[in-house]
Amino acid sequence: MIRTTDLGVTFGRTDVLRGLDLNLAAGVHGLLGPNGAGKTTLIRVLATTLRHDRGAVEVLGRSLARAKDTRWVRERVGYLPQSFGYQAGFTARDYVAYLAWLKKVPSRDIPPAVDRALERVDLLAQADRKLRRLSGGMSRRVGLAQAIVNDPLVLLLDEPTAGLDPEQRVAFRELLREIGVDACVVVSTHLVEDVAYACGDVRIMSEGRIVSESTPQELAALGEGSDHLGDSVIERGYTSALTSARSRSAR
């Protein structure tokens, strides 16, 4: 459902993405990596907010080089950016309804679609509260509600669990698995546990490349008996995979 070939993005003189190949089907896919690895840039390219410099990107079989195809893709994509801006005075329900309208959800379907999205992120009871009065975790969930309000086929989430408490994280992972049954969900995170419990596979990014591709179980196996840094086996697996990728590229 997502395919990139030799994808490259350059900011000024820095190569942020360097020849990235990706082929993702339905399911929940994790993107792990240190800060500056290019996770956010990759998500932004896939979300059609950032133009790439080299290579090709196909989302749902359409190239992002033509406006007509981009609009088509945009109707079918959900995107949770790292931070979202909203108008002062917007309630959670107003904000999600506005985004639903922008995404061309038929106006008759907007009210139930909005409430359903808010219910799925467990915010229906707070739907009429002003966004600026919601806690960090709550406004993160409003962001998620707008991302799923159009029942997207591709859901792109940039650090979705930032600010969520442990209980909300568990509910959130459950929701991801549910959506991942027939949609392609890409989760960029630096929290290894998110990946361990919600994702079917994990790609580790470093310096603009994907340096490892495995299942969470394989990552955990890598961490067994490893003396790398980390509080859990999967964290140790992650640091171990990252370290060996770095030493490979140094050679």
Partner: peptide
């Protein structure tokens, strides 16, 4: 029983 107090087109207008 969802959408009891539906988001109105006003929200879209307000957003625009």
């Amino acid at each position: 029983g969802l959408a009891q107090s539906p988001a109105s087109p006003r929200a879209a207008l307000r957003g625009v």
